[in-house]
Structures are given as C-alpha cells and as structure tokens.
Design a protein around this nucleic acid. Structure first.
Lengths: 343, 343
DNA sequence: AAGCAAAATGTAAGCGCTTACATTCGACAC
DNA sequence: GTGTCGAATGTAAGCGCTTACATTTTGCTT
C-alpha cells in the first residue's frame, strides 16, 4: 500500500503543497530566489529538503529551452589523450553551473553522428567536437538547431566554425624538422587511421612537407596506419624495422603509439636513440616516463580545454559565433631523439 | 523573417501534418512500427526524413518514464584505469540500444553526489557506480526512485547492493604475499587517498594482513597516500626512499602510481628490481611498457564492464536486484619484482 | 486613514510527447 | 447487402515544469 506522497519521486506540486504555496512560487524559489520573500523561501527550501526533491530535468528543458548542459563527443576514452583537456573543460563549465555530458565515438564517424544526435535530443545547449571532419548534414543540423559548437584539437583559420586548437600540420612540421636536422633520412611513421581524421592526416602531411622542402623523396617515408593503442605501436614498430632500408627514426602520431614503439624497438635489441630515434605527439604524462623519455610535441591541453569552455559559454549566451583561437604547441626534445647513426 | 516550419526544430506535429496523419500515428510509427499500415509508415518515414526530425528526449522521458539511458559516475577520466572496463560496459549497452552517459567525480564525494543527482534528474534508468562507499542518503534516494544500480570495481558479498567486481583486499593480499615471499621485509606503500575510497583502503589492508600473518610488525610498512597521477608516484617514491630503513619494495595502489615510482627509483640511481622492487595494480597497458615491466594484479576489466552491463540491464527490465558477481583477479609477475637484496 | 505603486504570489496555459480510449475502416461470413 | 469484428487511426488527457498575466499584499505617501 504505497501512498503517492511518500513512495514516488516528489514533484513540484508535492513541494508546493507541503510548503503551502503555489507551484509557481516553488519554481521561482529554485530559479531566481530573489523574487520571493525570505520567509517563503525558507518554507520552500525546507519542503524541498524534507522531500528530497530534484526538479525533473526533462520537464524543465521542455519548457525552458535551456538545459545548462553541454555535450562533448570525443573519439576515445581509452587513453589519456583527451583526458586533461576535457578535465579543464569540465572545470570551467562547472564553475558556471553548467554540466558536461561526455560521449565517446570510438573513432567511428557513424557512431559519432549518433552520439551527437543523442546529445542534441537531450537538449545540449552547446557541443564540443574534436576536429573538423564530419558530414555536412551534421553541421546543417547543428546550425538549424542553433546549437553553439566549438571544434577543438584542431585549428583552421578558414573554417567558418569556431575552433580552439592548434595547427596539427605546423606542429608536426616543427618536430619533423628537428628529426631531419639530426640527419635522419629514412623515417618510419606510425599514424592513426587517417580516413575521417583530419588531425592525423595533417600530422602526416606535416612530415611529408618537411621532406619535400628538404628535397628528400617521399619514398623515404614508410607509413603505417593503425588504431591508437600501445599494442598497436608495438606491432607497427616491429613491422617498420623489418623493412630495408631500416628507418633510423620512427615518428608516431601520438605518445601512446610512441610508447609502444619505443618498447618494441628496445625489445628487438636496438638502442634508443643511438640506433633508432622515436618521437610522439601530445606530451601526455606517459611521455616522461618512457624509457628514454619521449621527444614530442607539447600540446597545451588544459589551456585548450579551458578556453574552449569559455568560448562555448560565450556563444551560448550571446547566440553568435566566437572568434577562433589558435594555441601554440611547443617542441619537447627529450632523450628519445638523437642524431642519425653513421652507418 | 523566419517561418515556424523551416527554421525551428521540427516537432511531432510538424511530421504529422506533413504526412497527413495524426501525431499518435507518428508516435506509433517511431515506437512500434508494426502497429501501423506499411503505406502509412512509408509516408511518415518520408516526412521524418525530409524534416530531419528527432524526437525530443525530455518530452519523451516525461511521459514514458523510460529513457533507455544509463549513467556511470567514475572517479576520474584522467588516466586509463576505468577506460577499458567502461568501454566494454558501453559496448554491451549499445548493443541493446541503451545510451551511456558518463560523468567524472574527480574523487570528490560531494561532487560524485552531485553527478549522481544530475544523472537521476536526467532520468537515467540505471547507474553504474564505482566502489561502495558513499553517503546513505544517496542510497536511500536511489532506492526510493527505484533506479537500478550496480557497483563495480569492488565486491562485497555482504552488501545488499548488486556488485560486479573483485575483492580488492584478497587481490592485494596475493600480491603482497608474492612480495614477502621474496624476502622483502621493509615495504613502502603508495596508496590513493583512502578517505572515502574503499578500494584503496581494502588494498592497503590486504598488505597489512599479509604482514600480520607473517608475524612482521606493521611498522615495517611506510604508507604514503596521494592522488592517482604519475607525477604523484614519483614524488611519493622519492619520499619513501629517503627514509631509513630504506624499503626494498614499493607497492603501489595502481599501475599509474607504479609507473611514476619506477621512473623515479631509477632516476635516483637504483636498479629495479635488483635494488628496489616495485608493484602496481590493475594491469593496464601501461604496465607492460614500463621499464622493467610491472608486476601487478590483473583485473579483468572488459569482463567486468560487460557483465556489469548485463546485470544492470537485467535489473532495469525485471525491476529487481540481480545477484552479485565476483570476478577473479590474477597475479602478473613481471620483471619489476625481484628477490630482496641481501644487504 | 485612504490611495497607490511596487513587490509577492497565484492561476493557468502550454512545452513535445505517449497512450488509453473512441472512432472509423475494411474484410469476411452469411 | 448487412452485420460483425479486428485492425488502423484519431482524439485528447496529461507527464512536471516555467512563465505571462492576473490578483493580492505590502509599504509608502499624503
């Protein structure tokens, strides 16, 4: 024998009844306390507490058209690549009373689309997306719904979309420059799958450009595409080193792959960097505990997350696009990169 | 000059109008197509497509009381500890058409509570929580709302809550046994902060129990609590090694701390494991690329995530608690653990 | 003490959807 | 042709909330 009032989830009407006021007053109390008399406020708050009332989010969103929620769709949660940036993003949002919902798309375009729609249907006021590349229908949909959107982890001044990120190509060019400057001529590349991943593609083309500028044939590059995982880095490294001429440097699309690569290179009996140099990208914590520590591109993850949040909040509030922000990356030269061995 | 029909987000009424049917038919078409004539279905689907209609989630949840959504609140997204398990969890849910929402609580009880409430307000049908320890009000609230809940990453046969996990104490005892068996008598421990973290606490007490069983004084243990980060592992290791008598083994609360510890131990000029042994917990990918590879406790993360999902779905569907599942952990003895140096 | 504007509160209309119930339709038996 | 019945569709009532508007109360001024 359950009575409506004590078993079910309390509604605003229950609170109103208990406090002896109307539902409107309760609502005001919750949304803008300054609009109600302190004495009334007290009564309502007590009722809320006693009942353990939480406003039904769906109902609220239905009428208010504002959810104070933003969504982020990231390619993967499997490793720490996005962790730090997302963390900063969330912190900045939370400070403003906005909740972050995270969904992982597992590097699958279809799945990403599905996740975006899920977030939209849930009424996300804004969206954080990684990289530019996705179908035009999605962008059309976002625009039609007037959902504020920020692209991170990439930067393209020519895109109409607001982005807070860095130029992947430029960043990788700087690193590749450092590798080539040390005399390396045969370079193995372990990249993420470049189909539908503009960041991975930009990084690879950064390397190619450097080679071209140095007058080196692109055939000196051996590229393997694989998914982002330590294990994959190991396999790919083993594969690269089995070819002739053997590369003297292995450049990886991120630190995770590089960590695997270093491990495998050493397991095969080569020294790093005396025999083979290895580089990463991202400069996550992992880079520093590699043996030897990884030469990589430092990405200002926290700053990126923080500024992306501010840009997004601004867009939501003002209802119009904010300017894109280009962040600077930095070379971090550590022991995993050395001069090309003289053969 | 925007017309209602083309600029705004389409509603079920727009679809109904365009298809020349009632909203009820559209709804049926979406929720149970078999209830609708194929010809009608066709018309509706075409209208849906043309309008780019997506049902408003809030409205649907408001009336249907079912969201096909489950939430997971994890302590951190900063490292990969929960990544693999969560991945498997999500995969299993997705297979059944259920969406996963993830929130991070950053190891802060208050924040966790807030995140849980957020998920509840959003109508999550079920919840995945990590570890048992949290305030009783939360549990009361969950019960009152009838939200299916599964606790993972821990296992306690005496708890009324359904859990899918492993016995942290037992697992750590096995590892500590292996350490003690190799002659180590002075052991440094780097643990997560144990306040409001039952898993960390259980692991530490596992170590203590082994010492007690071996008749060794607990004072042989030097314990440092810190947050889960590679850097923290480094600092803690440096601190531990500065004491006399210097521990010959450092047992860490997880692989992330251990990775930092190994790095620091070697940086200080000690050899691992000849001078100092180091152990971890979790057996994430990181463990294998440490130098030397980490001796650790293997946790069946994917299996845990998968079975947690099944248990949760079952609970949601049947409306009653499912039996808890204890998963077995395994010792992974790798090179970071060696015999105690004879001094 | 009366009058009035401002502040506080109440009333009630929907937001977009599902679903119980009512209605219409068509196929079939007679 | 009529009657019957199940299938297909429509009608309309809310779900829990916010908010425009109406009403009451409060605190002043005169």
């Amino acid at each position: 024998m359950e009575t409506k009032s004590d078993s079910a989830v309390p509604t605003i009407a229950d609170v109103a009844r208990r406090a002896g006021v109307s539902t409107a007053t309760v609502s005001r109390c919750l949304n803008d306390p300054s609009k109600v008399q302190p004495a009334t406020r007290e009564k309502v708050q007590e009722a809320v507490r006693a009942l353990g009332y939480t406003p039904n989010f769906g109902a609220r969103a239905l009428v208010a058209k504002r959810t104070n929620t933003v969504g982020a769709v990231i390619p993967t949660m499997d490793n720490a690549i996005f962790a730090r940036g997302l963390q900063a993003f969330q912190e900045a949002l939370h400070e403003q009373g906005v909740t972050l919902l995270v969904a992982s798309a597992q590097y699958q375009p279809d799945f990403e689309e599905e996740q975006i729609r899920t977030l939209l249907a849930r009424g996300a006021d804004g969206l954080l997306l990684i990289g530019y590349e996705r179908g035009p229908e999605i962008y059309a949909e976002l625009q039609r719904r007037g959902v504020a959107t920020v692209v991170a982890w990439a930067f393209d001044p020519n895109s109409p979309l607001t982005s807070v990120g860095f130029d992947n190509r430029k960043a990788m060019k700087a690193l590749a420059g450092a590798v080539v400057a040390r005399g390396h001529r045969h370079i193995g590349v372990i990249s993420a799958v470049t189909a539908s991943n503009d960041r991975a593609r930009d990084r690879v083309s950064g390397i190619k450009e450097v080679l071209a500028e140095e007058g080196l044939p692109v055939s000196n590059l051996r590229i393997i595409e694989t998914n982002y995982a330590i294990e994959s880095g190991r396999y790919a490294a083993a594969e690269l080193l089995s070819h002739t001429p053997r590369p003297t440097a292995i450049m990886c699309g991120n630190d995770v792959l590089a960590a695997g690569a270093i491990r495998e290179v050493r397991r095969m009996g080569y020294r790093v960097p005396e025999d083979i140099s290895v580089t990463g990208f991202d400069d996550i914590e992992l880079a520093e505990i590699c043996e030897p520590p990884l030469t990589t591109v430092h990405v200002p993850h926290r700053q990126m997350g923080h500024r992306a949040a501010l840009a997004l909040l601004q867009m939501i509030r003002e209802g119009q696009a904010a300017p894109s922000i280009e962040l600077k990356t930095e070379l971090r030269v550590r022991d995993s990169l050395g001069p090309c061995p003289t053969s």
